[in-house]
Amino acid sequence: MKKNIYQPLKATIEEIIQETPTIKTFRLKPEADFSFATGQFIELTLPGIGEAPFTPSSDPKVKDRLELTIMNAGQVTCALHNMNKGEVVGIRGPYGLGYPLDKFKGKDILIVGGGVGLAPLRSLLFSLFSDIDKYNKVIVRYGSRSPSDIVYKDSIPKWIKKDKVDFLVSVDVGDPSWAGNVGLVTTVLNNLPVNLNNAVGIVCGPPIMMKFVTLKLLDLGFKPADIYLSMEKSMSCGLGKCGHCRIGKFYACKDGPVFTYEQLKGLPDNYL
């Protein structure tokens, strides 16, 4: 019999990396190879607890492992944060449309991330880095609440040194050890080294940050069709059936989760 569409695949927690006091990266080993395109999301299932949608933060080229960077925020994530190596979870998917990498070719790619919103963007960065010749340059502006809230602390210094990459981190509130920029991420979006006629902007972060970054990018002259937003919704089924993630005439799970601002701009403030 054909596999039931609601049935998850078993995956074992192989490694847990504490990124910040509230964020952990879980490396999962699925029972069978699992493919996804960058920006697509999966449903993570904890048997007996429930399901929640996440976008993988790992390299889509890797099929036998999957990494999820998750903040302890709700019921499922809280239970997940209390789990240990070797325990079994379920994954379903991948669902939705990811980042249209083809459309980014030969362009200046501006990536603006906020907090744990860097997770799906890390998967995008892996995809871009592995084909870096195809893109003009990659500019990353990452905002975090404080230095201790920065995720991927080990990787960021390596990414900063990469060719064709311009990576800047800003924190809302600094501390004595912090030598970098202090201020909301919107404050590091001025004088960007991008050619606006040949650039795309990709934004992922908390809703309030996405809103103001989008306004800022429009202000800078980005075209609505060149701004890509990852929409956070409470997707349940992932298949365009359960009705939870409606955004105007779209479902975030099947028409998104990555939308262009062009698609969303006519909608009221809360995107409903």
Partner: peptide
């Protein structure tokens, strides 16, 4: 109306996958 929620029910021996009207 058709909306539903996929939910888990924890039982002593194992968990069950439920679909509930939402």
């Amino acid at each position: 109306c058709h909306c539903f929620l996929l939910a888990d029910e924890a039982l002593a021996e194992n968990a069950r996958r439920l679909r509930l009207w939402d």
